[in-house]
Design a protein around this nucleic acid. Structure first.
Length: 579
RNA sequence: CGAGGUGUAGCGCAGUUUGGUAGCGCGCUUGGUUCGGGACCAAGAGGCCCCGGGUUCAAAUCCCGGCACCUCGACCA
């Protein structure tokens, strides 16, 4: 490919719409352009990267015996109604009607359609197990698209679905996908971590997320370096606090009302009363499936709504409105507490909150709190459970070592669905004994376009992208410094065509630009290897070969350079290849 | 959906307060000089000032109503 012809309009300045490195660099390097909010065109270089990642994914899926299929983006509402998700999916689903007024959607995911397709053909245990996958465009009308292709409304995903006779089969396929994912992300050159995650609306029992560690990641993670435990904070378990603390015989101060005029926040109350935030219990009122409930956590903790949902066994959870708060507590927002609520509501207390002695709590009266409150004495709870967010420094729930925190970009997710969809849609097979059994499913996703962005987040510097060899849009750039110098051009053209002959993905910068412009674009686009043909060394019959990653430079004879560079490319690729 | 912000040339922005018919830098075109890290000189092209109403002799600027985009939050396989 010739740089003079390539469709990769680079930008000197950072477009104002982008504020994370990967988004800025994808725009500046001419990889993508936005069409509307959350919808992007992939220009030549961006498209190449996406195809590279797809191909790696394809190879690893095939390696595990998965079969590629391709399912439609346009789906009928009917099959979504069968699982009840037509209504549950809400406004995140792009919906449309055909000319006959039939309801359709642009598929946000493919559990329904793949399950129905399999159901129609599924008869015998002899047809199992199977793993089907596709690499296809997904549509989700995200509330707020952001970070370029990191969270976009139209994006490319690899989604795979396994079908098994039983849980043992599912475990086996799950392990295969787990291994495939490890290999995929290793080959893509990104540093990833596998964490336990909340299953969310998709349901199912066990699930793992593959996260690329990055400051701009939208998920908070904790992991334990001692035992290997890792979890998304929305899922991470808090270690149970020792009971003894609560049972210890101590002189209690006794509960009493204290005036806290206008003090609504934890910060205001604790600084006014001169106590630490861990001595205050905050009480949050939620509407859980339409019923108000009170949740109590320590003042220095964040409530975890996913855990609260689980503790209550409810589907819908949202913070109560100020009107409900005033009605239930009998006081304005900011003074709610577990002692003496006006209305009898279910109280869920974090198991760490109930061991706080002589706690400060809201008095359910304006401008007042209660000090010296104790669980079991002054208040009680209907449920005591782990309902707070784990934070870095907490004890690991497995081994007790201190957890470390990080942020991550979710690039892959594995779910054990079990029979959630096959029971809803009636997918069964006959076993050897002629008995009808439900098929057991798993589903497995990789965000292809998001992985591209994550790779850039992980590999860039002030000058541009530093592509791992495996996913670079092109592997090598040959750069004659001055196209007016016929010797330079001849040498560069020769090296270029030799590299093409070796099967290397190479671009020649044949533009009549000054060297500075070419260097800047080369760094920005991030060709892993750059071959500079310039006047300094041409007299000695040599050219400069340098690595984008560490800026190392070596001089190589013109005759040898194509073979040499080809070896470098192969070496870089083999380093990324597991085993 | 709640809160905040921004829409002016391909990109980054000024001009809006105080109305007088649009500018700067980069990029682009042509010619020349240059050529190892975003050159210089000269001459050019390029605008529905987001859209629609209104006020006014006159609107990028003031008023009303939309729309789009960005950020934070809520939300989310």
């Amino acid at each position: 490919m010739r740089m003079s012809q390539i469709f990769a309009p680079t930008l000197r300045e950072v477009p104002s719409e982008a504020d994370i490195p990967s988004h800025q660099l994808m725009l500046r390097a001419g990889m993508i352009r936005k069409t509307v909010s959350g919808v992007y065109s992939y220009l030549h270089l961006g498209c190449r990267v996406v195809r590279k990642i797809e191909e790696i994914v394809r190879e690893e899926m095939d390696r595990q015996g998965a079969q590629e299929v391709l399912m439609p983006a346009i789906q009928s509402a009917d099959i979504w109604r069968e699982t009840g998700r037509w209504d549950d999916y809400g406004s995140e689903m792009f919906r449309l009607k055909d000319r006959h007024g039939r309801e359709m959607c642009l598929g946000p995911t493919h559990e329904e359609i793949v399950t129905v397709t399999v159901r129609d053909e599924m008869r015998s245990y002899r047809q199992l197990p199977k793993i089907l996958y596709q690499i296809q465009t997904k549509y989700r009308d995200e509330i707020r698209p952001r970070f370029g292709v990191m969270r976009s409304r139209e994006f490319i995903m690899k989604d795979a679905y396994s079908f098994d006779r039983d849980n043992e089969g599912l475990d086996s396929n799950y392990s295969k996908m787990y291994e495939a994912y490890c290999r995929v992300f290793s080959r893509c050159g990104v540093d990833y971590r596998v964490v336990e995650a909340d299953a969310g609306a998709i349901g199912g029992s066990q699930n793992h997320e593959f996260m690329v560690v990055s400051e701009v990641g939208e998920d908070a993670l904790v992991f334990c370096e001692a035992c290997g435990y890792g979890a998304n904070v929305e899922r991470a378990e808090a270690a149970r606090p020792p009971e003894s603390e609560h049972d210890a015989v101590k002189v209690r101060t006794g509960i009493r009302k204290v005036s806290t005029p206008g003090m609504r926040t934890v910060e205001e109350v604790t600084s006014y009363l001169q106590v630490g935030p861990s001595k205050l219990l905050k009480t949050l009122l939620y509407m859980a499936d339409g019923e108000p409930v009170a949740a109590v956590v320590r003042g220095d903790r964040d409530l975890n709504e996913a855990k609260l949902k689980r503790a209550l066994g409810v589907r819908e959870l949202e913070l109560a409105s100020p009107e409900v708060i005033e009605r239930v507590s009998g006081a304005p927002v900011g003074f709610t507490g577990p002692v003496g609520l006006r209305e009898r509501v279910k109280i869920v207390a974090d198991w760490e909150a109930v061991v706080v002695e002589d706690a400060v709590v809201g008095a359910n009266a304006a401008d007042a709190h209660l000090a010296g409150a104790n669980y079991g004495v002054d208040y009680s709870a209907d449920v005591v459970a782990d309902i707070r967010n784990v934070v870095a420094g907490d004890a690991c729930p497995r081994c007790g070592a201190a957890l470390r925190g990080a942020r991550g970009v979710e690039v892959g997710h594995l779910f054990k669905l079990g029979t959630k969809y096959t029971s809803a849609l009636g997918v069964s097979y006959l076993d050897e004994g002629g008995v009808d059994n439900l098929v057991v499913m798993g589903c497995y996703g990789i965000g292809i376009t998001r992985t591209a962005a994550a790779a850039i987040e992980a590999h860039h510097d002030d000058d541009g992208i530093i592509w791992p060899m495996s996913v670079a849009p092109y592997q090598v750039l040959v750069m004659p410094l001055n196209t007016q110098e016929s010797v330079q051009m001849e040498v560069a053209e020769r090296i270029y065509s030799e590299l093409c002959g070796y099967g290397v993905e190479v671009v020649i910068d044949d533009r009549d630009e000054r060297p500075g412009v070419k260097f800047k674009d080369a760094d920005l686009i991030g060709f892993p290897i750059r071959v500079v043909v310039g006047p300094k060394h041409l007299g000695d019959g040599k050219v400069e070969v340098s690595m984008r990653r560490d800026r190392s430079v070596e001089l190589v004879g013109i005759e040898d350079v194509a073979a040499h560079v080809t070896k470098m490319v192969d070496r870089e690729l083999s380093v990324l290849m597991p085993q």
